[in-house]
């Protein structure tokens, strides 16, 4: 057993300094198309067109619906006029009705994660929040198995037909005040699964969403940023 203690100590502190300091490691985010930079043409061959119409407008005023982007990188490799790409991860945004938690709840929040049909990537990124590199416990954020203790309902996946009852029940079982967080483009808009007969078009069709985190999948830091935003702890 002492081996493990030693092993743990040997590893030292690997946790990110975020949100106190910027996290500059590479490969922590898939990024988004950069619509502000020059270039960018959304027309082209069939295999180069944005499949979910996240990019729209024309080449002079390109617009991006982050909630639809699934990181297929078609616009980047568009042979005619590729758009450029940005990094970063602070993408969370409140919906119209969404507000942060009241002051007394901000220090510590419990999260119930519901997988409503995701591909496993979003769920894995959420799971990684407990990873030593992100360690959300240090920020007073915890994942709980029961909705009874949960403040935040974190939903990944497009809400498949079979998961509707379960999701609804989980939401109903949570005490007030509660917030709903949709994570990933599937949960926001249904992503590429939106037109199926059993796969839904996102969480908001079933329960009101307070905060949205786009990305396919949003990296752990994006989810963390979203949680801190919901807690009213971001600038």
């Amino acid at each position: 057993m002492s081996n493990w203690v030693l092993k743990g100590l040997q590893s030292g502190v690997v946790t990110t300094r975020y949100p106190r300091k910027e996290e500059k490691a590479q490969g922590i985010s898939p990024g988004f198309p950069d619509i502000d930079s020059q270039g960018g043409d959304i027309n082209g061959r069939e295999e180069d067109v944005c499949p979910t119409a996240a990019l729209y407008g024309d080449s002079n005023s390109l617009k991006l619906d982050k909630g639809r982007c699934i990181h297929c990188f078609r616009c980047v490799r568009n042979t005619g006029h590729p758009v450029s790409w940005t990094s970063g991860f602070e993408w969370a945004s409140f919906t119209e009705k969404g507000t942060p938690f009241p002051k007394i709840f901000q220090k510590s929040l419990y999260i119930r994660v519901v997988d409503s049909g995701d591909c496993g990537a979003c769920l894995n990124e959420v799971k990684l929040l407990n990873n030593p590199l992100y360690n959300m416990h240090r920020l007073g954020l915890f994942i709980t198995p029961t909705p009874r203790q949960a403040d935040i309902l974190l939903i990944v996946g497009p809400v498949t037909d079979h998961m509707k009852t379960a999701l609804r029940k989980t939401y109903d079982a949570m005490p007030e005040p509660k917030r709903v967080m949709a994570v990933g483009s599937c949960a926001l808009t249904g992503g590429i699964f939106s037109s199926g007969f059993t796969s839904g078009s996102g969480v908001s069709s079933l329960i009101p969403v307070d905060i949205e985190i786009p990305g396919c999948p949003p990296p752990p830091l994006a989810v963390l940023h979203g949680l801190l935003t919901l807690a009213g702890r971001t600038k």
């Binding site: 519901v114 009874r148 379960a166 029940k169 989980t170 109903d172 949570m174 005490p175 007030e176």
Partner: peptide
């Protein structure tokens, strides 16, 4: 007081 249904793991 708000009464919530019993938590049953989301089973139908």
């Amino acid at each position: 007081t708000v009464k919530r249904p019993r938590w049953d793991g989301g089973i139908r």
